[in-house]
Design a protein around this nucleic acid. Structure first.
Lengths: 348, 348
DNA sequence: TCCGCCATTGTAAACGTTTCAAATGTTCAT
DNA sequence: ATGAACATTTGAAACGTTTACAATGGCGGA
């Protein structure tokens, strides 16, 4: 094997200087076609490949972006990454991918590594966007970044998200409208997810409003907290699904949890939505395919990824005002929410 | 903003040469603790960040790997990427992610970009691993790579996969054992997926074997080809699910297709597995949560990603023999396959 | 013929690292 | 006192680009 060809090799072969080769690569219009062809031929002959690392070292911009998500195992994030990657591809950007497993330490470590790589900017889905060291770091280093799915309370950072509280509010309201009075939310731990907390707030708000404004007699909102990646909810849901205090509706903070919750209901012999109604938030693709079709507050996940990259490009190009976008969600017409079971008929 | 600190800045601050700074970073043991501390202090004070691009330019290895998958929208690939990313993280490797949308042109383009980045190696899931220009390119450039999910016919490339044909064979056999005689496979287009073809072969083989070896009276195998990412199978499945020739079992080449197929069955008023049995291949997580629980030939997707990275590291470290691993799949105990509906009872 | 202009090309200095060979200083046996 | 052996540090040359600036040559107009 001959050593890897460089611009110098190509230049020698084509009988020009490396400056000319560089010009052929970057601005062929400023070079006479005859020369361009000669250089191109030499490149092809030598199988020359420009070394991005050399270029990056020299240039101010690296044309690469860092992406951090909690995990690829949740289709919401995977789909958003798909959107990011698509958009990046169109712009010829390189994507550096990392995941945090919802761990703030790993978030910081991952971002630090990305910064060492001198990415031009970052798209992040953080466990908790408020009072987050990663954000402080990025601001202090003056690196463009866009939060995805996070809905930070501070307004000086760019973010793309749905209104988490509103999403939960709406799906909860849909249940109340079907006559449900005893509801619980199934959510991930709040420390690991600000979305989880925001959605829980919306859930509580809906119940309070029904109670206060509309005078509906509602049981107090209940909460079932679940670890991330947990798919076996059978044990943890027992006290919510059985006994005299059993709820008739479960609002889940993610679709993955909703699907797992439906599965758990089934192990207790409860039908959805016959005995228990279940709603989710996110709008992952499988939700629309399963039986019963999942009712969910749907967000356009992939589009959001693309949009995040568009925002980031704006920031990278020097746009000073960080934009924030709060997208509308959409309640899907599903089957997992139905009329509340009549109170009197006992269960288990 | 002061310009970004470099090793030179740090060296000046600490009163040493850049060579010493470099050694503090890379091999602190060879430097007296007193010096190490002084340099470390300077780094902290200046908020120094090593520039990976500088390092990459100089060093033979870049400590980065490229990953190419068809799409992140399919949980199989997302999960495998999760595994890769985890393992890479443990080794301090940077992951460059690209996706091809099952398009050979984009595969080639993406890999080319990754090579321009001088990744140390690649993990690829190709649309079609046989007679693929990407593979030729990588071999000719002598770049380590591992195929994931592809099961190439040539033996000189590393790969990690389940036995695709065997997976389909086993799940088909399970259906035959339940009395099914009229079966169809739902699969992605063969040009876009070698796995699809291999699985179809296994499907046919199982039917043939039942016929030839066990003397079972089987209808000829049928095939329903579907575009990728297609989730609405209602129209395309009509001729398979209705009329006198309706099948009693659908073997799907992926779990995503299986879930979509179950959904389509439902729109025809067919119950699964009461009227039609459906089996999948892959073993994505949601499959175990839906109703009916999906019968599938399960592969350890995330583990396979980790394993792929381990293999790749071996190749990068100079291992000459490319390893190939054909992992055992496991038939999941699901509910989507049941006894065949009695022939005489008419449908629709 | 000479000059200036333009198009084309070339020279050389960065960019931030790593690393080899060489320099400096210290210790110790002779 | 001398030099060998060693620990510590340094200088300088890469790595493959980009790019400001300088150089070259051809051409037309005076």
């Amino acid at each position: 094997m001959t050593p890897k060809p460089t611009m110098r090799t190509v230049a020698a072969k084509a009988g020009v200087s490396i400056a000319t080769v560089s010009r052929v690569i970057n601005c062929p219009d400023e070079v006479p076609t005859e020369t361009v062809e000669r250089v191109r031929a030499a490149m092809a002959y030598l199988k020359y490949r420009p070394n991005m690392n050399g270029r990056r070292l020299k240039m101010a911009q690296t044309r690469s972006v860092g992406v951090l998500v909690p995990t690829m195992a949740n289709p919401v994030f995977a789909t958003s990454v798909q959107g990011i990657e698509q958009a990046a591809n169109e712009d010829g950007l390189t994507v550096l991918l990392t995941s945090s497993e919802y761990d703030p330490e790993r978030e910081l470590g991952a971002v630090s590594t990305l910064l060492n790589n001198r990415v031009d900017g970052l798209i992040l889905t953080l466990a908790n966007a408020d009072d987050n060291r990663v954000i402080d770091l990025l601001i202090s280093e003056n690196i463009p970044f866009v939060l995805l799915f996070n809905q930070p309370s501070r307004t000086d950072v760019a973010s793309i998200s749905v209104d988490n509280a509103k999403s939960a509010y709406d799906i909860t309201q849909a249940m109340i409208a079907q006559g449900h009075r005893k509801l619980a939310m199934v959510a991930g731990h709040f420390e690991s997810s600000d979305r989880s907390r925001q959605r829980y707030d919306g859930f509580c708000q809906a119940i309070n409003d029904a109670h206060q404004k509309d005078g509906v007699e509602m049981a107090a909102p209940r909460l079932c907290q679940v670890g991330f990646g947990e798919t076996d909810l059978e044990g943890i849901l027992e006290s919510f699904l059985t006994g005299p205090d059993a709820v008739t509706g479960l609002v889940c903070s993610t679709d993955m949890l909703a699907i797992a919750a439906i599965s758990a209901c089934r192990t207790y012999g409860l039908s959805v939505p016959g005995d228990v109604s279940v709603g989710g938030i996110d709008g992952i693709a499988v939700g629309g395919l399963i039986t019963p079709k999942l009712c969910s507050a749907v967000q356009p996940t992939q589009k959001m990824g693309q949009q995040a990259l568009a925002f980031l490009l704006g920031l990278i190009r020097g746009q000073t005002e960080p934009q924030s976008l709060l997208l509308p969600h959409q309640l899907s017409t599903g089957e997992s929410i139905g009329p509340a079971r009549h109170q009197s008929s006992p269960r288990l």
